[in-house]
Design a protein around this nucleic acid. Structure first.
Length: 478
RNA sequence: CGGGAAGUAGCGCAGCUUGGUAGCGCGCCACGUUCGGGACGUGGAGGCCGGGGGUUCAAGUCCCCCCUUCCCGACCA
C-alpha cells in the first residue's frame, strides 16, 4: 500500500490529500523508509520560502557556508546533552569504499558539532567575532515514525550558526532570528504564529533556551514552524573554542543556532487548505494567476486565446506569475476544479462573451468570489487581489486560531478541553516538570510555548493549583 | 518497539466465507459528439492476484512461513 499523506487529511479534508499526492509531493515505495520526493509544484513553494528567508539573512548580515554531510562519530560525542538527545535518531555509515571504517561516520542530524569543531580554528580574537553563518542543506533524523512533509527521515532546511563575544549579543541574535521566522511565517506563508520559549523538557539538546514559533493547523493541532536556539557557551566549551576578549582575557564565545525546514511546505498546506484543496498564499504560489480560456469552436478559440495571451503578457510584465491552461483535452469545469485543488490564488476566465465586451472574469481562491473586470483594469486589479488574498488567508488563519484558543483555569477544564476541542489551551503553570509531565501523559498535549520572559500569570497552576509562575500554552502537536 | 489493518492493472477497490476462464471505477490510447463548474458514446491497451512452501485433478480463494506498507501509541523540526 502506498498511502502517503499529511496527517488526518484523508478523513477530514479529502481534497488536501488529493492535491498533495498529485502536485505537492509524495513519498514513493521501495525507497528508504520515511524519505520523500518533492515534486515540482511543492519544490517551487520551497524555493519561495528559501528566497524569503535568505534575503532576510543577508539583510541582517549573514553569509552562507557549507559544511560536510558526514560527521565523525567522536566529534559528535563531545557535547553530552546533544549526543544523548540525538543518538536514538542517527543514521551511521560504517562501510566506505567496500571496507569497514575505522571510525563510523554519522550523517548529520544538525551541524552544531562539526561547525563548532571548525569554529575552534576560526576564532582567536574578539576581532573575529561575530561569526554570522548559515547553511542550506539536508539533514537526516531516523524518527520512529514519519509524516509527509512534517517529519521525514531526510529533510531540507537552513541552519544558522553564529558565534558572539558576549551573552547579550548572542541573545539578541537569538531573538532577532526568531523574529525573522515570525515574519516569514506570517507575512509570506500567512500563518500566524505564537512566539516565546520552550520549557526545559522541550529544549533542543545542548541549548540554554529554545525559542519556537508555533502555528495552529486546520485540524487544531500545533506545528512548531521554526526554532531559534540560544546555546550559551555549551558548544564553545565542548569544542574548546576560546578567544581573547577586549580586556585581554581568554573567554568562550556565545552561540546561537536556528533552523527552518521543508516541514513548512506541509505547514502551509495544513494551515490554509479547505474542502476544495490547497489555498496557497500568493507570495509562495508557483502560479499566481491561471487563465482558463473558454471556447466552443475553432473560431472562438482563436479570439479567446489572443485575448488570453494579451492578458498574460500584461500581467507577466508586472511580475505576476501567470499560466494559460489551453489544454484541449479538458473542459473548463474540469480545469476550474483542478486549479482550485492546486491552490492557485486567482483564476481568470476568458470566453467569447468576454472577448466581445473586452473584459475578463476573475475568481478568488480565498472565498470563491467572482468579479468582472474590463481588460484595461486587469493589471491594477490583479495586484490588489493578490494582496487581498495574501492578507485574507492570514486573517482567516488568525480568526481560526482565535476561535480555537481557550483559557484553562483548572485541570478538569484543561484535560477535557484538549480531548474534546483541541486547539491552544492557555493557563497558569507552576513551572514544575511534574505538572508538565502529567498533562502530556494524560492528554498527549505538551507546552508549546511560554512567554519570552516569565510572566506572573496571576492565577494558580492549572494543573496542581499551586502558585503559578508562568503562563503556558498547551496543545497537541505534530 | 508494542497494538490494529492491508498487499489483486498506473491509482482506488471488489472477488476469498462456499477452490473451477481475472473483475469494477478512475486514468490511459483511437474516433465521434461536446466545451461559462469535474462531459458522453463506441472501440481498445494494460495483471508473476507481495514472495516462498504445502493441500488439491484444480489455489487470487484453504494451510504454514517470510517480506512490505499503512493506521494508533512511545520518540521527534
Amino acid at each position: 500500500m502506498s498511502k502517503d499523506r499529511l496527517p488526518s487529511q484523508e478523513d477530514d479534508f479529502p481534497a488536501w490529500y488529493q492535491a498533495v499526492v498529485r502536485d505537492a509531493g509524495m513519498a514513493e515505495n521501495g525507497m528508504a523508509k520515511g524519505t520523500m520526493i518533492i515534486k515540482p509544484h511543492g519544490y517551487a513553494v520551497w524555493e519561495f520560502i528559501q528566497s524569503a528567508l535568505d534575503s532576510r539573512f543577508k539583510a541582517t548580515g549573514h553569509e552562507n557556508v557549507y559544511f560536510p554531510l558526514f560527521i565523525p562519530e567522536k566529534l559528535l560525542h563531545k557535547e553530552a546533552e546533544h549526543v544523548e538527545g540525538f543518538s536514538p535518531e542517527l543514521a551511521v555509515v560504517t562501510v566506505g569504499g567496500g571496507e569497514v571504517l575505522e571510525e563510523p561516520l554519522v550523517v548529520r542530524p544538525t551541524s552544531e558539532t562539526i561547525i563548532w569543531n571548525t569554529y575552534a580554528n576560526w576564532i582567536q580574537s574578539y576581532r573575529d567575532l561575530p561569526l554570522l553563518y548559515n547553511q542550506w542543506c539536508n539533514v537526516v533524523r531516523w524518527e520512529k515514525r514519519s509524516r509527509l512533509f512534517l517529519r521525514t527521515t531526510e529533510f531540507l532546511w537552513q541552519e544558522g550558526h553564529t558565534a558572539h563575544a558576549s551573552r547579550d549579543e548572542a541573545w539578541e541574535e537569538t531573538v532577532r532570528m526568531l523574529e525573522v521566522y515570525r515574519e516569514v511565517s506570517e507575512d509570506v506563508l500567512a500563518i500566524p504564529v505564537l512566539t516565546g520559549r520552550k520549557s526545559e523538557s522541550e529544549r533542543f539538546p545542548g541549548a540554554v533556551e529554545t525559542l519556537p514559533i508555533e502555528g495552529l493547523m486546520r485540524d487544531k493541532k500545533a506545528l512548531q514552524c521554526g526554532t531559534s536556539h540560544f546555546l550559551g557557551q555549551n558548544f564553545a566549551k565542548a569544542y574548546d573554542v576560546t578567544f581573547l576578549n577586549e580586556a585581554g582575557e581568554q573567554d568562550h564565545p556565545w552561540a546561537t543556532s536556528w533552523g527552518f525546514s521543508t516541514r513548512m511546505i506541509g505547514g502551509t498546506i495544513m494551515a490554509h487548505g479547505d474542502d476544495k484543496g490547497l489555498r496557497l498564499p500568493p507570495a509562495v504560489a508557483p502560479v499566481q494567476v491561471v487563465i482558463v480560456p473558454i471556447y466552443r469552436s475553432d473560431d472562438e478559440r482563436g479570439g479567446v486565446l489572443v485575448a488570453a495571451d494579451k492578458a498574460k503578457a500584461a500581467l507577466s510584465g508586472n511580475g505576476i506569475r501567470v499560466r494559460i491552461d489551453d489544454r484541449d483535452q479538458h473542459r473548463p469545469g474540469f480545469k476550474f476544479s483542478e486549479w482550485e485543488l492546486k491552490g492557485v490564488p486567482i483564476r481568470i476566465e476568458i470566453g467569447p462573451r468576454d472577448v466581445e465586451a473586452d473584459q475578463v472574469v476573475a475568481v478568488s481562491r480565498l472565498d470563491g468570489s467572482k468579479q468582472t473586470l474590463s481588460s484595461g483594469r486587469v493589471i491594477a486589479n490583479m495586484s490588489k487581489m493578490l494582496d487581498d488574498i495574501q492578507k485574507g488567508l492570514f486573517e482567516d488563519a488568525k480568526a481560526f486560531r482565535a476561535a480555537n484558543t481557550h483559557e484553562a483555569t483548572d485541570y478538569d477544564t484543561l484535560k477535557a478541553g484538549i480531548a474534546a476541542e483541541g486547539g491552544f489551551w492557555v493557563g497558569a503553570w507552576c513551572g514544575d516538570a511534574a505538572c508538565e509531565q502529567k498533562v502530556s501523559s494524560e492528554t498527549s498535549a505538551t507546552i508549546r510555548v511560554l512567554p519570552l520572559e516569565p510572566t506572573d500569570p496571576g492565577a494558580p497552576c492549572a494543573v496542581c493549583g499551586k502558585a503559578g509562575v508562568d503562563r503556558a500554552t498547551w496543545a497537541k502537536a505534530y
